[in-house]
């Protein structure tokens, strides 16, 4: 198992700061949904460097990103499956952090 970055969309959507999207080294990995006003992660592209976590914690000061075991996410967004198509993002099931870790 391995860790991936996960955005708490309820915190992020309050701010719409878009800082992590500019500092993630990987392309199209932290995506930004203009409708839901939140960042979210394509888990299959995340290399778990945690740069986004430190940007959100120290630069944005919003603490919206945490590293989470991939197996503890239900319905994570996968670019290889969904492709890049913002018009279809609203049809996707919501990513849920499984209870045992969401304290």
């Amino acid at each position: 198992m391995y860790l991936v970055a996960h955005v708490d969309t309820s915190i992020c959507s309050e701010t719409a700061c878009k800082l992590c999207t500019q500092f993630c080294p990987e392309t199209n990995t932290i995506l930004y949904d203009n409708d839901k006003k939140t960042a979210f992660v394509a888990v299959d592209r995340c290399k778990a460097c945690e740069i986004c976590v430190s940007i959100c914690d120290t630069m944005a000061k919003h603490h919206a990103i945490k590293m989470i075991m991939i197996s503890d996410l239900e319905n994570p967004f996968e670019m290889s499956k969904a492709g890049f198509n913002p018009a279809k993002w609203k049809e996707l099931p919501e990513t849920v952090v499984l209870e045992k870790v969401a304290k």
Binding site: L31, Y32, A39, K47
Partner: peptide
């Protein structure tokens, strides 16, 4: 960034480089 498809695809450079 994050709202349009970028020119670079996946690649093997190290995490956090």
């Amino acid at each position: 960034m994050g709202t349009f498809k970028e020119i670079i695809e996946e690649h093997p450079m190290c995490a956090g480089c």
